[in-house]
């Protein structure tokens, strides 16, 4: 922290004074929020350091990157605005306390990356471009990247939704009925563990279009964990829940839909998460092998032209895209399994 302050650019110091003034004006909220100045300054300081690194390294280079410095300025500005508004919004305050450190670390990591790549040139080009070059690729090729992301999303949704629906139905049937379990479990145990991507040669022969076969492969990849976890959740429903329901006159449909399925929900969600992970893998492989669109295709296409800036740009987008979907599924779980809050740690 002390080192960071010494390197602090002029702007950040000014901001520090500004923030202190804002805080002095509001003694009471600052006292209740237990003000910790370092959480306020982490992001602007990190952005300032990254900017300093960037300008120092690229001062003699012609192709310095058009957007990277702008990006860092925006981060710096956002950090300062956040620090200035910090005393006024409790939601913001909480968020900054939680996220400042990790956000600042990420920005410092960008700076470190720039030092290693375009500063000290420790890693061979074109395989390891600087963050500035990657950001340039991302913005220059935004049309195609957006298009690819959209295609990937559509493909993923078709496959995932299909896999989940079929998986839930087969999982409930296998978990509930012992005769279906007798016939279904061997199929599940033998066919399920084969990675969906291993079916690609067969899928290409059978299906008329690569889009249909890819969606089917994703569905297959999702189907296995969803079925397995649903079936085990259903068959492990506490017998006493079913007994209680029977003593107040429940019919079989009630036992399945109102007792067994809710009781299996935590397990089902584990299956949904595993299925989502498997669907990402299958999507990217299917796209790079067969389908002529999507992020997986984009990565292998850019690699073919040795445009590694684009490869990384697509990877960054994939990271954001996939983790957003994961976060979305977590939110759905939080709503559906709200009753677990307090029972388990989440």
């Amino acid at each position: 922290m002390t080192n960071a302050l010494e390197e602090l650019p002029q702007r950040a110091v000014a901001a520090n004074g500004h923030r202190a003034g804002a805080e002095n004006g509001l003694v009471a909220p600052a006292a209740t929020a237990k003000s910790r100045p370092h959480t306020l300054l982490l992001v602007p300081v990190a952005a300032g350091i990254a900017l300093a690194i960037h300008f120092f390294i690229t001062r003699h280079q012609l192709s310095a990157g058009q957007y990277y410095w702008l990006f860092l300025f925006i981060v710096l500005g956002a950090g300062l605005v956040g620090a200035a508004l910090y005393p006024f919004f409790s939601g913001l305050r909480e968020r900054m306390h939680n996220l400042s450190a990790i956000f600042a670390a990420a920005i410092l990591l960008l700076g470190l990356w720039e030092v290693i790549t375009s500063g000290l040139r420790l890693l061979p080009l074109p395989y390891f471009p600087s963050p500035a070059a990657i950001l340039d690729s991302m913005i220059n090729d935004r049309g195609l990247l957006f298009d690819s992301t959209w295609h990937s999303l559509m493909m993923l949704m078709n496959g995932y939704v299909l896999g989940v629906i079929v998986g839930l139905i087969s999982g409930v049937c296998i978990g509930w009925s012992s005769s279906i379990r007798y016939w279904g479990m061997p199929v599940l145990k033998i066919v399920g563990p084969i990675p969906a991507t291993a079916w690609i040669p067969l899928a290409m022969v059978i299906s008329p279009s690569t889009a249909v076969s890819s969606a089917a492969l994703i569905a297959l990849a999702v189907w296995f964990p969803v079925t397995m976890l649903t079936a085990s959740g259903i068959s492990n429903t506490r017998a006493s829940y079913l007994d209680v329901a029977r003593t107040f006159g429940a019919k079989e449909s009630y036992l399945i839909f109102r007792v067994a399925i809710p009781a299996a929900m935590p397990n089902i969600f584990i299956g949904l998460f595993m299925g989502l992970g498997a669907s990402f893998l299958t999507l990217v492989v299917a796209e790079s092998v067969g389908v002529k669109s999507g992020l997986g295709w984009y990565v292998s296409w850019a690699q073919g032209w040795a445009e590694y800036g684009k490869v990384y740009a697509a990877l960054v987008i994939m990271a954001g895209f996939f983790s957003s979907l994961m976060t979305l599924l977590f939110k759905v779980r939080d709503i559906v399994l709200v009753w677990q809050k307090g029972i388990i740690k989440w």
Binding site: D243, P262, W339, I343
Partner: peptide, 20 residues
């Protein structure tokens, strides 16, 4: 067979944890 005319309460309340 079980029916609503005979209620049964166990030592464990066996409430459905997913319902209010």
């Amino acid at each position: 067979g079980p029916s609503a005319e005979r209620g049964l309460v166990f030592q464990d309340p066996n409430l459905f944890p997913w319902l209010t």
